[in-house]
Amino acid sequence: MTRTHLVTGAGSGIGAAVADRLHERGDALCLLARGDERADDLRRRFPGATVLVVDLADPAAVGALTGLPDRLDSVLHVAGVVDLSPVADLPLAQLRSQLDVNLVAPALLSRAALRAVRRARGTFVFVNSSAGLTAGPMWAAYAASKFGLRAFADALRAEEVEHGVRVTTVFPSRTATPMQEKVHEQEGRVYDPAHWIQPGTVAGTILHVLDLPADATIPEVTVRPVVPRPAS
C-alpha cells in the first residue's frame, strides 16, 4: 500500500527537502499552501500531489480545512515563522503570528488529521527548534511558540499510544534555510549556509523516524551542526 503523508512547509527549506525525498520514493503527498501561487508551484514540483490552500496564520481557516485524506501514515508539521524582538518592543502582531503558525495551526491540523493517522497507526512529526529547548534574548515569541509545541506533542504522544500512533519531536539547531537567512539579517550577522545543518540532513532524520519498525519509536531527537558557531 502506498504511504500517504501530510506535509506543511513544503515550499522551501526542511519541508521541501523531506517532500522531495518522499515524492522520489513514490509516496503520496498532501501539501498545504498559503495561497494559490504557492499551490501552483507545489503542483509543478510534486506532480500527483494533493495541494490544499490554507493560511496557517488564520486559525479559523485552519479549523475549517477540508479535503484531508481518510488515511495518513504521517503528519509532518514543518512550516514555521520567526521574528526576533526584545519583549519590551514586541509587537502584538508578531507575537500572534508566531503563536498561530508555530503552535495553533499544528494543534488544529493534528486534531483534524487524528482519525486518519489512527487508521494507519501512523506518526506525527513536529519539527521544533533548539529554541524549543532553551530561550535566549530576542527569541521570546518564537521560543514560547516552540516550547508550547513541545508540550502539545508530549500530551498527544501520551494520549495516542493506545491507538498505536507515534509522536516525534525533532529539534534541529540552526539549519541552512531561508528562515535562517532572515534570522541572520535580523541579528545583523553575515549568513553563510556552510556553517549550518543542511535541510537534507534534517529530512534524513525525519525519514528515519517514519521508517522505524512498528516495535519502536523515537519520542525526541536533537540535530546539531558539527562546526562551531561563528562569532559574527
Rank of each mutant, 00 (worst) to 15 (best):
40 D>F: 06
40 D>E: 15
41 D>K: 12
41 D>T: 14
43 R>W: 03
43 R>G: 03
44 R>S: 15
47 P>G: 06
47 P>W: 06
52 L>G: 02
53 V>E: 13
54 V>C: 10
54 V>I: 14
58 D>A: 01
59 P>R: 00
60 A>E: 15
60 A>N: 11
61 A>G: 05
65 L>V: 03
66 T>L: 08
68 L>G: 07
71 R>G: 01
71 R>L: 12
71 R>F: 02
72 L>P: 06
74 S>E: 01
74 S>G: 15
75 V>P: 00
75 V>L: 01
76 L>N: 01
79 A>M: 04
79 A>C: 08
81 V>P: 05
82 V>N: 15
82 V>A: 15
85 S>Q: 10
86 P>A: 07
86 P>T: 13
87 V>A: 09
87 V>F: 04
87 V>R: 02
88 A>T: 12
89 D>S: 13
90 L>D: 07
90 L>K: 02
90 L>W: 03
90 L>E: 06
92 L>A: 13
92 L>I: 08
92 L>V: 13
92 L>H: 12
93 A>Y: 11
93 A>K: 11
93 A>C: 08
95 L>V: 03
96 R>G: 10
98 Q>Y: 10
98 Q>F: 04
98 Q>S: 05
98 Q>M: 05
99 L>K: 08
100 D>H: 13
100 D>F: 02
101 V>A: 04
102 N>G: 07
103 L>F: 09
104 V>H: 02
105 A>K: 07
105 A>R: 05
110 S>E: 10
111 R>S: 04
111 R>C: 06
111 R>N: 12
113 A>K: 03
114 L>M: 13
115 R>E: 15
115 R>Q: 14
117 V>N: 09
119 R>W: 01
120 A>L: 07
121 R>A: 05
122 G>M: 01
123 T>R: 12
123 T>F: 08
124 F>L: 07
124 F>S: 03
125 V>M: 03
126 F>S: 06
129 S>P: 00
131 A>I: 01
134 T>W: 11
135 A>D: 09
138 M>A: 10
139 W>F: 14
139 W>T: 14
144 A>E: 09
145 S>C: 09
146 K>E: 05
146 K>Y: 02
148 G>R: 01
149 L>E: 14
149 L>T: 03
150 R>W: 12
151 A>S: 14
152 F>E: 15
153 A>K: 04
156 L>C: 11
156 L>V: 09
157 R>C: 08
158 A>F: 00
160 E>F: 06
161 V>F: 12
162 E>K: 10
164 G>A: 08
166 R>G: 13
